[in-house]
Design a protein around this nucleic acid. Structure first.
Lengths: 250, 250
DNA sequence: GTCATCTGATTGTCTGACAATTTGAAACGA
DNA sequence: TCGTTTCAAATTGTCAGACAATCAGATGAC
């Protein structure tokens, strides 16, 4: 999650691409609008055309712009919705870890539910493997973090929706480093690993039984406890004030 | 969702970046490994170094590689998990619309739940605006698709989790074009728009009441009906066979 | 053995050129 | 006048070569 990567002086293309994305996000350039030409941008920012092209290549990769040879570069219709990132500058400001974990929480709950409804015998076998390996890890004192990852991926695979599967992997990857404290020596000695494993088995049992509601609840428990193990406060109910319903009639 | 964009001959940098991403995905290059140098790649693919640089710029944008001036380009530790896309080639094969909708379904359900738990008075007012405008649209025969979008975004905003909000927007954007058939003349005349609006009001009521469970159910009904309106079959329960639980003891 | 220095390799940037394509206007014919 | 063809300018795509900035390993001094 956190990284203390050394700071590097930003590259020109990097800086420029941020500026251009800012133009689009702030609405200075509307969808369908044409960008200044590469030469104009090069002059304006006092860089070479190669740098401009690299910056625009990045915008293309992100789905912000589309270019047509001979015509120009245009803000795409759905600018900004080509890809989803977790480390946008605007977003990563406050409570980032909590927010990321919460999104993962939401998706994995639904994922467990779907898995319980659709799992096949093969899916169950795929779930048993990392489960057994984690049990071995508990007994022998080996690392189980990788199998923890694998178990969550196997649950996602049991939904038979490759998109859901990939998204769970995507979110889970953000926490792969954070799973280690559960499975290292310290985590095993104070029972964290054992607790996690019990929660895993509850998830498996619910999915094997085809009980979607139980699977959801087991996943909820596991993620809630996992948040605790990571020191992330999910603070569910802020205690909303009672506000009457509909002010407008249909 | 669907687009009949005219096919353009692929650019060299585009082609090359796909090849390089393939190298990483297939494990031919493991995380931490060093890429061939730009010159080597240029020679190997018979393109100029500018093309190679543009292709690598794309990989950098996607979080597949990190480059260090003077050292080289390296496969990043968590290659492929820098961004989440819906239109990966590998994924978009079969049942794409259904899979995308299902992911949206999962997230918006959790979103409605969180919104009910956390909404403030200001959130409720932000929800009322698009709701009222959709009612106006129903009476006056104007377009309400944009307000439909806005309502879903307002629900997401009520979670007070900017990441969840952005992801709901991201998924919703894939269907913004698909919302029109509900709100055009035909959709209004046969009651589709009216049905959708009733579902919206149920969601609002549950969120206003702070009833998470009811909000979830209302959102579930809305999305399920929305899928029908779009002609997407969600086929929930495939009728899993009863398989006994745990084969391995804790 | 440790440290500073040097050297080659590699990415970052610049410049200029040409190819491929698009766009709009001009020229032309009906 | 309208429609078509042709052409030329503009723009992105690609290439080649050069230099700057930085890094990693080798070299050498102490």
């Amino acid at each position: 999650m956190l990284s203390d990567a050394i700071v590097r002086p930003p590259r020109l293309a990097e800086t420029l691409s941020r500026s251009l994305i800012g133009w689009v996000r702030e609405g200075r350039l509307a969808p369908g609008d044409q960008f200044p030409t590469e030469k104009q941008l090069a002059d304006q920012f006092a860089v070479s055309r190669a740098v401009v092209r690299e910056a625009i290549a990045r915008l293309k990769a992100d789905g912000y712009v589309e270019t047509r040879q001979g015509a120009g570069a245009f803000v795409s219709r759905q600018a900004g919705y080509g890809s989803f990132r977790l480390h946008e500058d605007a977003v990563s400001a406050t409570c980032h870890a909590r927010n990321v974990f919460e999104l993962r929480y939401v998706v994995e709950l639904g994922c467990a539910e779907l898995a319980a409804k659709r799992r096949t015998a093969a899916d169950l076998m795929a779930l048993q493997l990392p489960l057994a390996r984690m049990n071995d890890a508990l007994r022998s004192g080996l690392q189980g973090a990788a199998d923890d990852d694998a178990f969550h991926r196997a649950v996602a695979a049991a939904t038979h929706n490759p998109l859901v599967e990939r998204f769970v992997e995507f979110m889970g990857a953000q926490f792969s480093a954070s799973r280690v404290p559960t499975w290292n020596e310290h985590g095993r000695s104070n029972g964290r690993a054992c607790d996690a494993q019990r929660e895993h088995e509850a998830i498996y049992a619910a999915i094997a039984a085809g009980d979607a509601q139980a699977a959801r609840e087991a996943a909820e428990r596991h993620l809630r406890e996992g948040a605790k193990r990571l020191g992330i406060a999910l603070e569910e109910s802020a205690g909303v004030s009672p506000i009457p319903a509909q002010p407008e009639q249909g």
